[in-house]
Design a binder for these strands. Structure first.
Lengths: 131, 131
DNA sequence: TTGCAGCCTGACACCGGTGTGAAGGTCAAG
DNA sequence: CTTGACCTTCACACCGGTGTCAGGCTGCAA
């Protein structure tokens, strides 16, 4: 299977597939003409790479994780990889907390603006009455 | 006040202050020698810019928001700016939801790995016993 | 006059996955 | 042989606030 077909089967662009190879996530044999040649398992591997990318892991982390996560639905586990995953989960928790803080800070701004608007309306009404 | 002193007073780097100016968030008069010259209000303005940056707003949004948010502790509100803020809050909500999804997906991976590990241990124990 | 601190502009680097384009080789079908 | 699809590598662009460096001007003090 050449790169175009793998792209079609996985939904990844050829650009992405070459990038995965460059980052050491995916390997390909080469035909005598230099074309990349993939076996059927590669479809599975790419699917797994993209799952992990979608969770926010970067390619470095996935490279460490992939030897354990490969092998289709039966993940071969190792203590190291689960540590990586749990570390990433902790980081996601931290990011979520940070976003919540930002949201709260913005909420305070919105609240202040709402109050000001009410006060302004009241002031405007008073001005009208006194005029 | 020159840029160095403003930097000292606000905690922003001179690089950042020049960047804020370049993005239209902060304006400075120029001394005859070309040096930027700031008035006392700029300290307040920079503080406000950095508050908003810290909430995750980008400089484009802040530029739209700043004319309303300026003026010290009394924010001058306008319907437009509150719309911007609420839009940003909605986006933060969406990002939080997305991070939660990622976390859940990773959690599923971690769970699979934990189960496999238990099974592996059981298999190893059986192998030991039969040997 | 020398030295140093402070200012100026302009530009590259970062991160990280992907889009895009150039310039060129390969191969099968007409 | 030509056409067109498909492949190769190399490289720039994106986002966005900031660090940092280069090369040069200003201004104050010794």
């Amino acid at each position: 299977m050449h790169i175009g077909e793998l792209a079609r089967r996985t939904g990844a662009s050829t650009r992405s597939l070459r990038y995965y190879e460059q980052r050491g996530l995916l390997c390909a044999r080469r035909d005598p003409n230099g074309y990349r040649s993939y076996d059927a398992e590669s479809v599975e591997t790419v699917a797994r790479i993209r799952e992990l990318l979608a969770t926010g892991l970067n390619t470095d982390t996935i490279r460490a994780l992939l030897p354990c996560a490969q092998g289709g639905p039966g993940l071969t586990p190792c203590a190291f990889s689960s540590g990586v995953v749990e570390q990433q989960m902790a980081q996601l928790d931290a990011e979520i907390a940070q976003l919540r803080e930002r949201r709260a800070a913005l909420g305070a701004y919105a609240e202040i603006m709402r109050e000001r608007r009410v006060q302004d309306r009241a002031l405007a009404a008073m001005a009208l009455r006194s005029a």
